[in-house]
């Protein structure tokens, strides 16, 4: 039972990381790539880490509980820090004058 929950959570995390990667590779400009990186990153990491936490319920002992709580702390930290890091990167790009992509500009460029 626990194994199935771990596998499902891990699979969800891997799939959303896959779509994050595809998004990072395919989106047209820096800002929309940040959308993929900022959102999919948090969700996939937290899902995989939760899967690893659930795996520790197999043989509950003091050490196992400590490790599980530490992994929970890591996922909490990622949950807090990843949007902040995204914010820092995108703010650096905005202040350096990276121009957002838009369809009109691309069509004008092709003519």
């Amino acid at each position: 039972m626990i194994d199935i929950i771990v596998m499902v959570l891990f699979g969800i995390g891997l799939f959303s990381f896959f779509s994050t990667t595809v998004g990072i590779l395919r989106f047209p400009d820096f800002y929309s790539r940040m959308h993929a990186a900022g959102k999919g990153d948090v969700f996939s990491s937290v899902a995989m880490l939760l899967g690893l936490v659930v795996y520790h319920f197999h043989h509950p002992s003091l050490d196992g509980v400590l490790v599980a709580v530490k992994i929970l702390m890591i996922s909490l930290f990622i949950f807090l820090a990843s949007p902040t890091a995204t914010h820092a990167i995108i703010s650096a790009g905005f202040n350096s004058g990276v121009v957002p992509w838009s369809r009109q500009k691309q069509e004008e460029g092709q003519q």
């Binding site: 995390g13 990072i24 820096f30 790539r33 992994i71 990622i78 990167i89 790009g93």
Partner: peptide, 21 residues
């Protein structure tokens, strides 16, 4: 651009945490 690279490196770093566990 340089910040594109920074973004990719940030994502890789977050996933390295999972990989280490």
């Amino acid at each position: 651009t340089a910040i594109d690279r920074l973004m990719a490196v940030n994502v890789i770093g977050t996933k390295t945490t999972v990989l280490l566990i």
